[in-house]
Write a protein that binds this DNA or RNA. Structure first.
Lengths: 152, 152
DNA sequence: TTGAATCGGGACTAAAATGGTACTGATTTG
DNA sequence: CAAATCAGTACCATTTTAGTCCCGATTCAA
């Protein structure tokens, strides 16, 4: 697929919803209502986000959730990792020894380079930026240099 | 998952295998043997790669496959697209109108920016580079700029 | 103190995607 | 014509994903 799972997509929506009410503690029901997502789904998302300490939870009557940090200090990468675990585009990036041809295989190295680019991109987008509606001119500029070997 | 499917991973291995024999026409059986992948799997991969005109096929006795273009002119992005379709990290990037909150939702825009970074990264890696075994110093340098709005 | 609201954690189900297999047909060579 | 090889389709088993439900723990307030 090369896709982020739908739940992760939802999680970004939930996070922006919470970020839009910086001073309030929002209940799961309120968030579900605003985002038009099913309540149990939202509940599941918030559990994961809370576990990753991206949101703070409050129990009891009038309980709910709030951002654990300012929106500007939460990156898209953290939201993705909260739901999908470490970012990695191939399986063999992590484990070794399952492929017989590791020696002749330059593929792993290439994938790892792509990984790091993606990782940087996700880390560069903050929740605060996601809050703002489409800004046509706003973009991430990327310079890719592959021609020469460098040590840093 | 945020992963490329296993088949796509295999496809890169198959492509590098073919690229390693620039002058030969390799049969599916030969490729399966060299890559240690199952023959039907390799067959399936080659069909997709052939459909995307990344490899040329020859029927009949002594038939097989060959790169359709020099390895330096085939990018990782093309291989990924051959197997997974257009590169896009979320579903709503493509279709509109399925989400009620499109107006207030700045999330889509942010995802699209991340998409373009990933796309550039995949496009910057050529099959020729993947052929070479790990080169420790070789990396993709990425500059990310999100602070200011720009028109280009 | 009691009850209602709310989070926390886990188990469970249904559906979809994925990976892999099998079979049949078409094409080329000799 | 026969063998080798690609082409296309259909199929199945497994895994993953999305979504739901239940029950216990916690807090607030009447």
């Amino acid at each position: 697929m090369l896709r982020v799972s739908r739940l992760t997509d939802y999680a970004t929506v939930v996070m922006t919803c919470i970020a839009a009410h910086p001073t309030d503690v929002l209940s799961t029901a309120q968030i579900a209502d605003e985002t038009h997502l099913e309540l149990p789904t939202v509940s599941k998302l918030l559990k994961a986000l809370s576990h990753a300490t991206l949101v703070e939870s409050f129990r009891g009557v009038n309980g709910g959730y709030r951002l654990a940090r300012p929106a500007s200090e939460i990156s898209l990468a953290e939201i993705v990792e909260a739901l999908e675990g470490p970012i990695g585009m191939t399986e063999c990036s992590a484990a070794d020894g399952q492929c017989d041809r590791e020696s002749q295989c330059g593929v792993r190295g290439s994938w790892q380079r792509v990984n790091s680019v993606l990782d940087n991109a996700l880390r560069a987008v903050s929740l605060a930026e996601m809050l703002k509606p489409a800004q046509p001119g706003r973009k991430i500029a990327v310079t890719v240099r592959t021609g020469e070997a460098t040590t840093e």
